[in-house]
């Protein structure tokens, strides 16, 4: 018997899907991080080599993306915690808007700092 598994998308759906995707992204990053750090066991040359590889501008930009992923997961996680504690359950869409606003503000501010450091490092 056929069972349809979808429903109209709304703020809660976005919050949930982004939370899942950012969570997967963080797991991927952590594994990558552990792999990079594991080069320490191969000695100075091995570690410097991998750090040089990840020191390129492409990865610097990816780091800004990573900060965005961390901030989203963090602020939406706080939103979920508040909901679980019964805070603003009836106004969850407003809570999502607040979480997104704080997320973008923090991401924008740290992104600006990171970009200015990148520019000053190259210049």
């Amino acid at each position: 018997m056929r069972v349809i598994k979808r429903y109209r998308i709304h703020a809660g759906t976005f919050a949930w899907i982004l939370h899942r995707l950012s969570g997967l992204g963080l797991i991927f990053y952590l594994l990558l991080h552990i792999w990079v750090i594991s080069h320490l066991s191969g000695g100075e040359e091995s570690f410097d080599g991998i750090m040089h590889f990840f020191g390129g501008p492409l990865f610097k930009l990816a780091e800004i993306g990573l900060v965005g992923v961390i901030f989203y997961h963090m602020f939406n996680g706080l939103r979920i915690t508040l909901i679980d504690m019964g805070v603003m359950v009836e106004r969850q869409k407003m809570l999502f808007v607040i979480a997104v606003a704080v997320w973008l503000a923090c991401w924008g501010a740290s992104g600006a700092v990171m970009i200015s450091r990148m520019i000053s490092a190259t210049g």
Binding site: T13, I83, Q92
Partner: peptide, 26 residues
Amino acid sequence: CHTIFNCVEACPKDLNPTKAISELKK
């Protein structure tokens, strides 16, 4: 429950199961 709030969106009686869920979790 992943607090997606589809249940609240779908309820024809405008009830809030997610609120009940958070009370039960507490």
